[in-house]
Design a protein around this nucleic acid. Structure first.
Lengths: 341, 341
DNA sequence: AAGCAAGAAGGGAGCGCTCTCAGCAATGGG
DNA sequence: CCCATTGCTGAGAGCGCTCCCTTCTTGCTT
């Protein structure tokens, strides 16, 4: 482990002395060089290079009250966060956008239920310019705690209906679900089942609503609640086959669930898609492509959602408080036909 | 998006005034309360609560030169990072440990090859107290760039042999591989193949070395280079069956590769483990448990590795530069027997 | 050639905090 | 009873930077 370099880093003052100008001029050059004449700019630039000057962010923040940093809060309880690459992809999108704006990404993972206070305190502490918050459950106490911090939510928060000022980025869960189910119906399937996600999350609720939009008056036994995991998908599928042996299509609330469901179908000798057609949601590569059989699914552009969240937040940060807040964005989904349906 | 709260946050000064003490006393209380008499401590605490005072980290850092923040640098080129939950798990481990020490996690993802300079500049800029760096490839230029920043590496860096002062956390890749291969041999298998990872990573190299330790004088056609992905595992397995139809065991460099290999084996009508035994590496749940058949593999405690990296870094940070650097840690692995071998 | 405006550079205050050091109170020993 | 000693508390400097405001150029106009 390299030791912290012992020699003190050069300050603005040092650069100014070397370039033979004032601190203020160096500051101007470092921050874009507006209103400084060319020869001086050049001289200062050289001094900066020679000394290896890097601005002290703490000192800068102290006066500007900007931090060029954004917190990403992932409030997912426990393991699910990391069972699927969902957050990883969003993080990459966010990272790209933030990097382009010279902002840093401070990652806040909540560790269990009582950890909200810590996160709230951090956000309130003015360490970051804003926050991107994920995976809120319907009863999540976090939003109330982070009052005063510009925030964009990932996925529609459960309480957002009608709340002005709440900005979120989501995909068209309901529309995507409708398209999937219509596709199944178009295939001539009549006993179409739905394995839901955890219904304390709006994405799961919205997908269920989309299912219902098409399958009005559906046999309630064809709807089984599950939890977005492969194991949950297996259990749900077993229960489904038990209740309704005549099921001929399944719309699973996400790909992992669909994969679990397909495994059970195979176990029990049902062919996919001949006997039972299956559609997932997310298009989580490479799982969908390499599933057996390759999974038909509803694609959402996860990385783009991340990028968009960051962009919305940064835009909201740029313009003054008076300029009004950006509107939420709902991204379209596309049905990707493979083999399973 | 909630607007930034317009009212200025209370300062130490304000708390001091309210409590009727000096700034210095409030500072002492806020930082642990050493050497302040009880009644005053109490009064200050109350004032802090009433005002909702939160210290300004920028001001604090400016004078202490500590940031209570650690950078996590993930230098993985492109997509692989997020195809598997590896980093996610490490991140969780790191996050837990940092949280326990009131440190923040600043995530730096490099975007492509030319991005190193940006990361290096950030680290050199003294925004963080130290860095945790992942996924170095043999030719990675990053280490040379981040001189002067206390760093712990995730995984043995390729150039670390003999370099004093390089601290890393890794699992016993070589020993784990040996155990896996010995197990296959103990099963009576004689044509044991190895599908490697990308050989510009030490983990892949070490696992290959472990394989060779046991299989001295192995038929070179039984070693196929691959890339840690399921698709790569498929290709490698196909090639392997082509070259050596008599292969009766496969040690895959990681679980994803093993899953791909098993898929091809099934396709081609070979039974696992009867005809060909398969062992993976990582024990990446839930993939290994739910693979078909459940995968025998070498488990490494990924989250623990992350936690350990953070702990090592923080410990090195605590004691002064003179105290000597912590030693690298190599965690043991364990063979987890399931069905595939 | 003198006066003036506009633009460029410098001086200096101050962001909120920590930390050293001086001051003062309380305690105990001579 | 006084002084040394210890232990709290307060005053003040200063971390490195930005930004306001003043001063000095510079280039025009008249």
């Amino acid at each position: 482990m390299t030791e912290p370099s012992t020699q003190p880093r050069p300050t603005l003052e040092a650069v100014a002395a070397r370039a033979g100008v004032s601190r203020a001029t160096v500051s101007r050059v470092v921050n874009g060089g507006e209103g400084v004449r060319e020869p001086l700019v050049e001289r200062v630039r050289r001094a900066v290079d020679e000394l290896g000057y890097v601005p002290n962010q703490a000192a800068r923040s102290l006066v500007t009250r900007r931090h060029d940093a954004v917190a990403v809060v992932i409030a997912e309880p426990e393991t699910r966060v990391f069972a699927d690459p969902f957050f990883a992809l969003q993080l990459r999108g966010i990272s790209k956008e933030l990097t382009a704006h010279d902002s840093q990404l401070v990652l806040l993972l909540t560790e269990g239920r009582d950890d909200h206070a810590r996160v709230a305190r951090y956000l309130a502490g003015g360490h970051v310019d804003g926050a991107l918050v994920f995976s809120l459950h319907l009863d999540d106490p976090l939003p109330r705690l982070i009052h005063g911090v510009p925030t964009v939510y990932g996925g529609r928060p459960g309480w957002s209906d009608g709340s002005r000022g709440v900005v979120y980025v989501d995909c068209d869960n309901r529309g995507g679900a409708r398209e999937a189910v219509r596709h199944l119906v178009g295939l001539g399937r009549t006993r179409v089942a739905h394995i839901t996600g955890p219904l304390d999350q709006t994405s799961a609720v919205d997908r269920l609503d989309g299912f219902r939009d098409v399958m009005v008056d559906v046999d309630p036994r064809l709807i089984v609640e599950s939890d977005f995991t492969p194991g949950g998908g297996e259990d749900a599928m077993r229960e489904l086959l038990d209740r309704c042996p005549d099921v001929d299509a399944v719309f699973a609330a996400n790909d992992l669930t669909a994969v679990g469901a397909m495994r059970v179908l195979r176990e029990q000798g049902r062919r996919v898609p001949e006997d039972v057609a299956v559609i997932g949601f997310d298009d989580m590569l490479p799982f969908t492509e390499q599933a057996d059989p390759p999974l038909t699914t509803v694609r959402q552009d996860i990385e783009e959602m991340g990028r968009l969240m960051a962009r919305l937040l940064l835009r909201g940060l740029e313009r003054g408080a008076a300029a009004g807040v950006p509107a939420s964005v709902v991204l379209p989904t596309t049905l990707v036909r493979r083999v399973s349906a």
